[in-house]
């Protein structure tokens, strides 16, 4: 079967509970905003394929499955991730302060060259705002990470954020390839139900069962 994309990027959403990670995910993947998802039950990851400079880029975006609540994100969640959206809620000071902790968590568990971006979500709720845009920008400068304020509800900057992150990953990847130094295949195999069974190479292949 022909591949329907040129690149596959694994992206993560990270941030405190209630900052709107799942809403951002749904806004981007389904162009929907639905407050009936009370928590993230059943949401594993979503996929959207975008067009970037003529290349099909398949984005696989993983949600935390609620494991951020008591800081119990598995190390396995970070494996193989190429980009991370750090999300806080502009109406929630604490969620902004915790971005630093999440960055520390990422440094401990994710690959060293993972691309990051900070999102200040719920910027439509200006009357309840606790974190100014300037403070968000300041934090981003401190960590040399890109930053944008978003509203999953009003569909503001969500597209922009994912496209920016994906473009940065793609650029980094192509730079590596240009340096005639293709990154060695680091991943392993995924097991699948309809796995194309290898031609039996076993020296017992004549045996009927094998």
């Amino acid at each position: 079967m022909a591949k329907t994309y040129d690149y596959l990027f694994k992206l993560l959403l990270i941030g405190d509970s209630g900052v709107g990670k799942t809403s951002i995910l749904f806004r981007f993947s389904e162009d929907a905003f639905n407050i009936s998802f009370i928590s993230t039950i059943g949401i594993d990851f979503k996929i959207r394929t975008i067009d970037l400079d003529g290349k099909k880029v398949k984005l696989q975006i993983w949600d935390t499955a609620g494991q951020e609540r008591f800081r119990t994100i598995t190390t396995a969640y970070y494996r193989g991730s190429m980009g991370i959206m750090l999300v806080y809620d502009v109406t929630n000071e604490k969620s902004f302060e915790n971005i630093k902790n999440w960055i520390r968590n990422i440094e401990e568990n994710a690959s060293a060259d993972v691309e990051k971006m900070i999102l200040g979500n719920k910027c439509d709720l200006d009357s309840k705002r606790q974190v100014s845009k300037e403070r968000g920008e300041q934090l981003a400068i401190e960590y040399q990470i890109k930053f944008v304020e978003t509203s999953a509800k009003d569909s503001l900057n969500v597209e922009y954020a994912f496209f920016t992150l994906a473009r940065d990953i793609k650029a980094k990847m192509e730079k590596k390839q240009e340096a005639s130094n293709p990154a060695p295949r680091t991943g392993g195999h995924q097991l699948r139900a309809n796995e194309q069974q290898r031609k039996p190479t076993s020296w017992l292949s004549r045996c009927s069962l094998l």
């Binding site: 509970s17 209630g18 407050i35 998802f37 949600d63």
Partner: peptide
């Protein structure tokens, strides 16, 4: 409140 998770 903080209890309710992400999508509120």
């Amino acid at each position: 409140d903080d209890e309710e998770g992400d999508a509120q």
